[in-house]
Nucleic acid binder design. Structure first.
Lengths: 346, 346
DNA sequence: TCAGGCAACGAAAACGTTTTCGTGTTGACA
DNA sequence: TGTCAACACGAAAACGTTTTCGTTGCCTGA
């Protein structure tokens, strides 16, 4: 087992100083052609690679990005990571991932763990619990220590950082408008409780679309699901709630769901009730995941372009990190959503 | 913006030496109660946290695990990461993620990038291209430098490292046996080319099950899909291939697919051909992802317990890292698969 | 012959820790 | 009064780099 070799060892072996070795390897003109070649040959033979940790300590930057997300077993988030990783890699950065599991405490701990020198900056999406408690001190503290943050998707406005979001309201409006144009008269929305910012925004888009077409919103058409934990039995109760929605609204002919799962579950219930899609009922979801693509019927959906969100977030962060002047100008980039039409709409 | 504070700054401020500060913070008995309290109060006020990079350099360990996987937008892999992260976090480790995108070159580059001091060990699943080229020098080199590796799922036998795998052959055999017991007479398999080790093993399990029931395998019932890129048009050609499979075998009444996507696609084709499931055709997939759970009919599948695989892999690696004696004893842990019965089988 | 300059190299500091090994000041005790 | 231990603290090395600033030795030119 040959351990990693260091400058010091090369120096001793070749009977020169550490500085000489370092310079020789970086092709400094200070070093004679002779020694340079000698050193480089030796280094190559022993497969020398500079120690990253030492470099990080010296340069006071780690070339590593910390990602904190609520969960990773989720098509959208993994798409975002994939986008971040692509850009980061191209620009010589690594990514280190922390999971909050939607928990405030874990979010805080994870950030503290990484903020102590391990990374140069954060890209994150806020945990539900944090949004609920509205305690953002860990973000402001991190930022005030000079470590930049980029938030995506679930953001909170009054934090001084770059943000990458989708036009949730606009996307929802687009979807609901589509349903209206397709002839739906009674459109329901299946959404989350309001503390989830994106849920709230999408609900707003739904209302906007109705208003734009002079349709009065009905409270009975709005189902706000309390998704404490997405456990198995939650799925059952979700089905029941949706079934109840159908029962309350016999003339229901359109559904807009703020995520894939709600949409798919609505489909399931509809099918059980003998409704034909898209003839009797049209459904549109949010988030273009694998479920939408392979459902029966395939689901029309609002795509958020998770990959693009990740790429943009990484660009913003790295640009910030590598910017010379220390100007604190923060951007909020909006990634356009796209309505992907499939079989669940006419 | 108050920058991170260091021992040196505390020392200067309090007019003591760096060593004193360090010792005071670690509650050394060498330091008087007085100074200890003074230092700790000061440190707390300025929210002092030791710099991780400096610690890593000093201790020659980073408390970080490197994960290299082919892709992250994939239910199985993200489950594994989730499992790794859970264990790693509990034991005070971070995880840093590299994606190979199934490419040999990216796998090598990513590993080199991380191996230079950034991490203490690897957990990885081999890229398809690497398996195809059978070039494993980057693994052996990493190991010979004293950095442990744990492989999962896609492994190669003659590398000296811990491995966590599922009993692919056994799981496949279980599934196919189930089909046989359910009365299927003509069972097809939709699998990958043989260089993907898990595909090969699952095919073997299929053959084993047939043999155990004295059924002669028919070449026309084995479809080996060449999944170069899982691009959109690949999905189309996949459908065509499967359709061809149905046409060649009119009496087809059971399908075992080595992954979710193949199974779902087979379902789609079957539905198009007017087959009822599970009455006319029974299908079992491999990998318990989100698709299986929400397909119509829901898909009976062989679950690999990705989370558990990740947890076990992390345990093995960390145990190895923290083992005192330097014994090179490597384990291969087999995680039992489980047949999850749903609507696609009788 | 000697000042000056250049080529080639080395010493040392710095990044932020921890830890080993002094060292100086007490106080007690003979 | 002198000795020795205990106490409280500091100096310095070490981890592996890069970089600044010397410091040689030799050659050139007047």
């Amino acid at each position: 087992m040959k351990k990693k070799i260091t400058l010091k060892q090369i120096a001793r072996e070749l009977d020169v100083s550490i500085s000489t070795v370092s310079k020789a390897l970086r092709n400094s003109i200070e070093i004679s052609e002779d020694t340079r070649q000698k050193v480089q040959a030796f280094a190559k033979f022993y497969n020398y690679r500079p120690n990253n940790i030492a470099l990080s300590l010296k340069n006071r930057k780690t070339k590593t990005i910390g990602i904190i997300i609520p969960e990773i077993v989720h098509h959208f988030f993994s798409k975002v990571i994939s986008g971040i990783e692509a850009v980061a890699n191209k620009r010589g950065y690594n990514v280190i991932v922390g999971l909050s599991n939607e928990s405030f405490a874990k979010e805080v701990i994870n950030m503290e763990m990484l903020a102590n020198g391990s990374i140069d900056g954060f890209i994150l999406s806020i945990a539900k619990e944090t949004l609920q408690q509205q305690d953002y001190h860990h973000f402001t503290e991190t930022i005030s220590q000079g470590m930049p943050i980029v938030m995506f998707d679930r953001v909170v406005n009054d934090i001084k950082c770059d943000k990458v979001i989708v036009d949730d309201a606009q996307g929802a409006k687009k979807a609901v408008t589509k349903l209206i144009h397709n002839g739906c008269k009674n459109i329901a929305i299946i959404t989350t409780k309001d503390y989830v910012s994106v849920g709230k925004l999408r609900t707003q888009g739904y209302l906007d679309a109705l208003e734009a077409h002079k349709i009065n919103p009905k409270a009975s058409l709005v189902l706000k699901v309390d998704d404490e934990l997405l456990s198995e039995d939650h799925l059952d109760s979700l089905e029941k709630e949706i079934e109840h929605l159908f029962n309350k609204n016999k003339k229901l002919d359109g559904i807009f769901a703020v995520n894939e799962l709600y949409a798919i579950t609505a489909m399931k219930v509809a099918r059980k009730l003998g409704l034909k899609m898209p003839e009797d009922l049209q459904i549109i979801g949010f988030t273009d995941g694998v479920l939408s693509k392979h459902a029966v019927p395939t689901l029309t959906t609002v795509s958020q372009h998770g990959q693009k969100i990740g790429e943009k977030a990484a660009e913003l962060l790295i640009n910030n990190l590598e910017r010379e002047d220390e100007e604190d100008i923060y951007e909020t980039v909006i990634i356009e959503t796209e309505l992907i039409e499939r079989e669940s709409t006419k």
